[in-house]
């Protein structure tokens, strides 16, 4: 365990160097958040039907989406991509460590650090000035935090699958873009999942994507009652386990191909 924790912490330190990117991201996300809030406000104003989520909750949900955008399995760890592309991956194989967890630790770090850098200021500013409500209760806040942790693991497992696919495709931008589009849509980053049609809800609840952002956000809002917290976390962790398992198998296959194929 120790070596892997050390890798996470080194990865976080690398990421913390990119403060300028975080500042730029902060500005962009604030701007987009403001526009999205305006759009949803207009929707709510033009409809007389009762919505599955109040406007106040929706606005908070939107701001959470903006603040924690980098939770999503967006881009790959660029170091890892370069490593696979130029063959430095050979070094990685001369380490007495489990390659999957080794890379997973790196990925987790590159998911976590940039997200934290942006989330703090965005949550603060949108909470003070733009209508992000405080968490439903203290226990809702705790549930939210735990669920964000699980979402980070889930997102890293997703990212790992995308990275591992590079062992086959080398130019993996296509796949990673496709997956992150799907993930953004189905995790509620464009339109909050509770606003999706009723018939889609069971499928959305089953799929792994809800666990990326929707689950922690609804726990925060109290839209998911605390009683369903265990199920929600189990859903996130179960999918993480599945993706890790698939990732490990894929990595083993990819490596076998590579160690047999060489280069």
């Amino acid at each position: 365990m120790r070596p892997y924790l050390a890798i996470v912490s080194a990865g976080v330190r690398v990421m913390l160097q990119y403060r300028a990117a975080a500042a730029a991201g902060f500005a962009t996300q604030l701007f987009w958040g403001w526009i999205r809030v305006a759009i949803f406000g207009a929707f709510y104003a033009s409809s007389s039907a009762t919505q599955p989520m109040s406007l106040e909750d929706t606005i908070s949900y939107l701001w959470l989406t903006q603040a924690l955008l980098l939770l999503l399995p967006f881009r790959l760890d660029s170091d890892l991509v370069a490593m696979i592309r130029d063959g430095t991956v050979a070094y990685e194989l001369t380490r007495p460590a489990d390659l999957y967890w080794y890379w997973f630790s790196r990925t987790l770090a590159s998911r976590t650090a940039p997200m934290l850098l942006r989330a703090g200021p965005l949550l603060l500013v949108s909470g003070l000035f733009f209508g992000l409500a405080a968490p439903d209760s203290l226990s809702a806040l705790a549930a939210f935090l735990v669920s964000v942790g699980a979402a980070l693991l889930l997102s890293s497992a997703f990212t790992m699958l995308m990275s591992i696919s590079l062992l086959w495709t080398i130019a993996g931008d296509g796949i990673s873009r496709l997956i992150s589009m799907i993930a953004q849509f189905l995790s509620g980053s464009y339109v909050p999942l509770p606003l999706f049609p009723q018939w889609a809800q069971p499928a959305l609840a089953l799929l792994p994507f809800a666990g990326l952002t929707d689950t922690p956000f609804r726990l925060y809002l109290g839209h998911l009652p605390l009683s369903s917290f265990p199920t929600a976390i189990a859903h996130q962790l179960l999918w993480t386990a599945v993706l890790v398992l698939v990732g490990r198998l894929a990595l083993a296959r990819g490596l076998r191909r590579m160690v047999v194929q060489g280069g």
Partner: peptide
Amino acid sequence: WWDLPVIESFDLLREIYR
């Protein structure tokens, strides 16, 4: 590690090789 001071890569290798 490209972005880290040399000593941090060394410390990391210490952990990896236990």
